[in-house]
C-alpha cells in the first residue's frame, strides 16, 4: 500500500531514496528538501505524527546523527518512516511542527537528549532534563554514570 506512496514521492523528489527495512516503508530525505517532502506527505493524508527521534551512529565518518520521523495515515492505514542524516558539525534540522503540531514535544525531547536544533520550532527548550544540565545524555559519548546533581546533603558528622 505505502509502496505506491513511496514511488510517487521518489518520482516527485529526485533526491529521496528508499531503503527496504522489513515491511516498513523507509525513505531517506536530505535536510534541504525535508520541508517540501513534509508538505507533500501532509497533502497525501499522512495525518498522524507517530514519533520523532534521533539515532547516534558514533564513529560514522559523516552523518553521525540521523533524525527519524515516523508518520501514519489514519484514513489509509499505512505508515512511512523518514530519515534525515545530519553531520555532527552542523546539527540543525528544520522543524516539522508547522505541519504536525504533535511533533512539538517530541522534537523538544530529541533536542534535549541529542542536541539536534530544530529550526523554526516555536519553543525549543529542554523537556525532561533540568536547565542546569549540561550536555545531551543519550549521545553515545555521554559517560554512562555521569550525574549532575542539583543538590547534595552535607555529611552529618558527630551525631
Amino acid at each position: 500500500m505505502s509502496q505506491a506512496l513511496v514511488t510517487e514521492l521518489m518520482d516527485r523528489f529526485e533526491q529521496v531514496t528508499s531503503v527496504s527495512m522489513g515491511q516498513d516503508a523507509v525513505v531517506i530525505v536530505p535536510r534541504d528538501i525535508l520541508l517540501d517532502v513534509a508538505g507533500f506527505l501532509k497533502e497525501k493524508n499522512m495525518d498522524a505524527p507517530v514519533a520523532c527521534t534521533v539515532i547516534d551512529w558514533l564513529g560514522k565518518a559523516n552523518a553521525r546523527f540521523e533524525v527519524v520521523y515516523q508518520l501514519r495515515s489514519t484514513t489509509q492505514g499505512y505508515r512511512l518512516r523518514m530519515k534525515t542524516p545530519l553531520d555532527s558539525e552542523d546539527l540543525v534540522c528544520p522543524s516539522l511542527t508547522e505541519f504536525w503540531s504533535g511533533f512539538n514535544w517530541q522534537e523538544r525531547e530529541a533536542y534535549d537528549m541529542y542536541g539536534v536544533v530544530f529550526e523554526g520550532h516555536p519553543d525549543l527548550r529542554r523537556i525532561l532534563m533540568y536547565e542546569e544540565f549540561s550536555g545531551h545524555p543519550l549521545r553515545k559519548d555521554y559517560p554512562k554514570d555521569k550525574r549532575q546533581p542539583l543538590i547534595r546533603r552535607k555529611a552529618v558528622t558527630n551525631v
Binding site: 532534563m129 545524555p137 554512562k144 555521569k146
Partner: peptide
C-alpha cells in the same frame, strides 16, 4: 538504575 538521571 545507573545513569544520568537517577539519584543514587
Amino acid at each position: 538504575y545507573q545513569n544520568y538521571s537517577v539519584m543514587p
